[in-house]
Amino acid sequence: MRKEKALIGLLRGLVDLLTEESARNPEFSSKLDALLSELPEKKAATKKAAKAAPPEHLPDIHSEWNAREEMDFRLWLRDQPVSVLRAVVRAEDFDATRRTDKWKEAEKLADFIADCLRARQSRGSAFIGRGA
């Protein structure tokens, strides 16, 4: 902190000296103006592009899981577009570490969704049928 204050004081003195000399010497003032005019303007902060909105109608994977056998469900998932599969992963919060963001194949995403859904269903079934 002390070094910062000393540096600020040094720079303030230098600016005062330059101001004083430029007031007395017009030639020095024009050279200083030419030198300082070359400083770049502050760049405007670039805004991040807004993420694409998820599709409005996401399929209900839970009802599809119950209506189909597992292999039929996996095949049905593979027929979905990659953007829909990514939106399902986000909506169901299957991938907290966001490792699936790099995946581009619908088959890989569909298998991931099916495996996560099976795991979630098996965890939930442990509580079904327990007495109070």
Rank of each mutant, 00 (worst) to 15 (best):
E27S: 08
R24Y: 02
L117I: 11
R74V: 08
A91W: 02
M71E: 12
E70D: 07
P55M: 03
R99E: 13
D16M: 11
R123N: 14
A23L: 05
I113P: 06
E4W: 10
A126M: 06
K31R: 12
S125G: 03
I113G: 06
M1L: 13
D16L: 12
P81Y: 00
R118Y: 11
K43T: 05
E92C: 11
R120S: 14
A126H: 06
L109G: 06
R24L: 08
D115H: 15
L39M: 09
L11Q: 10
A119I: 07
R130M: 03
R12H: 04
R98Q: 12
H57S: 04
T19F: 05
E56F: 01
M71S: 12
A106I: 02
A91Y: 03
A114Y: 11
L18Y: 05
A96D: 02
H62A: 10
G129E: 00
T19E: 09
F112K: 08
K102Y: 05
R90T: 13
M1E: 13
A52T: 08
A6Y: 07
R90W: 00
S29K: 12
P40A: 12
R2Y: 10
D111C: 09
K108V: 15
E92H: 06
D101G: 02
K102N: 05
E92K: 10
K51R: 11
A106M: 03
L35A: 15
V82N: 02
E20C: 07
E4G: 08
D101W: 08
C116P: 03
E38M: 14
I128W: 02
K104C: 01
K47F: 01
K47G: 00
V84L: 03
I8F: 12
F94I: 12
E70A: 10
R123S: 14
R99A: 11
F28Q: 01
V88R: 04
S122A: 15
L58W: 04
A6L: 14
P55N: 05
R78M: 14
L75S: 12
H57N: 05
R120N: 15
Q80F: 02
C116S: 15
L18G: 05
A52C: 00
A44F: 00
G13D: 09
G131Y: 02
K104R: 13
R68K: 14
V82I: 12
A52G: 01
A67H: 10
G131D: 06
L35T: 11
R90C: 04
R74K: 14
K51I: 07
I8K: 12
N25E: 03
K3T: 06
E4K: 13
D101I: 08
W76Q: 06
A53H: 01
A87Q: 04
E105L: 09
D79M: 08
W76C: 07
E21N: 03
A87F: 08
R24V: 05
S29E: 11
F94A: 04
A132R: 08
L58A: 02
S122N: 13
D111Y: 13
L18E: 07
W65V: 05
W65H: 13
V88E: 01
E69P: 00
D111N: 15
E107G: 10
L36F: 15
R24A: 09
S30E: 14
R86W: 03
A67C: 07
